[in-house]
């Protein structure tokens, strides 16, 4: 299983789309690793600086409808190759959420109030996920543990290392 902990990067806006996460002009790459430098290239967001923020980030914390738009799984891979395996949001676009679990990564939904709490913990927030307990702990200027819903199928996908491994063994 992948690493599901790390330093939080706050993307405090709803409806961040997959064109912002990885612009279409990079979809001609046939290697996931080659996507790495282009993460969030077209995201314009006050306080976000790609060159400063990505290296230390391990977990994305964001708002509603994250990953809307194009179905491109490149938007998940570009996180994966930057060692970001968890996105915590108020909600996800369906295809992006499925792509995350299909790659054995975590798309965790929390209520808006919990996202507010995490984003208010200061600039340096460390997040750790306990998959078995379906909890995550955020530690900044305070430490809070949140419960989240984890569908048993999504959990199985993470455990299997993704949908291909799951489906190949089962169907």
């Amino acid at each position: 299983m992948k690493n599901f902990s790390g330093s939080a990067l706050f993307l405090d806006r709803s409806d961040i789309n997959t064109d912002e996460i990885i612009p279409a002009k990079y979809l001609t790459e046939n290697s996931k690793q080659d996507l790495k430098p282009f993460i969030l290239e077209d995201l314009t967001l006050a306080g976000f600086d790609q060159s400063r923020d990505i290296d230390k980030a391990g977990v994305i914390v964001t708002r509603a409808n994250f990953g809307c738009g194009s179905s491109r799984e490149h938007a998940v891979w570009v996180f994966e190759v930057n060692d970001i395996n968890v996105v915590i949001a108020e909600g996800f676009a369906r295809i992006f959420r499925q792509n995350m679990f299909n790659c054995g990564m975590l798309a965790i939904e929390l209520p808006a109030a919990d996202i507010d709490t995490i984003m208010a913990m200061g600039a340096d927030v460390q997040i750790a996920v306990d998959l078995e307990a379906a909890t995550l702990t955020a530690k900044g200027n305070q430490e809070v543990t949140f419960d989240f819903d984890l569908n048993s199928f999504d959990k199985d996908l993470v455990g299997a290392g993704g949908w291909l491994a799951y489906a190949d063994s089962k169907y």
Partner: peptide, 19 residues
């Protein structure tokens, strides 16, 4: 619309998962 992994499984197994 689906991502590449769903597509890959669709190509290989002829199935896809949905809620």
């Amino acid at each position: 619309g689906v991502g590449t992994t769903d597509l890959e499984v669709g190509i290989l197994k002829g199935v896809c998962s949905f809620r």
